[in-house]
């Protein structure tokens, strides 16, 4: 791709501001919600794991590091 076609691509025929804002806002909102949902799951499983360890009289069981339970 030459420099000219790259700048043409980003200018989007003069409506670059609108097109890239639309894609930008979509990326921010969707990735933000994805990140916060994954963080919620990580926090919860950590919390509940500790709670369950403390309450269990049995010695702690080795964590499943094989990634079978994603994420």
């Amino acid at each position: 791709m030459s420099g000219n076609t790259v700048s043409e691509f980003f200018s989007m025929g003069g409506s670059g501001f609108y097109v890239w804002s639309a894609y930008g806002v979509a990326a921010v909102v969707m990735l933000g919600l994805l990140g916060s949902s994954l963080a919620w799951h990580r926090r919860l499983t950590g919390q509940l794991r500790n709670k369950s360890r403390r309450s269990a009289s049995a010695p702690p069981v080795a964590l499943d590091k094989t990634g079978g339970d994603w994420p």
Binding site: L48, K51, A62, D64, D69
Partner: peptide, 8 residues
């Protein structure tokens, strides 16, 4: 819940 969080 405790079981799955501990990987059982």
């Amino acid at each position: 819940v405790g079981e799955v969080c501990r990987g059982i």
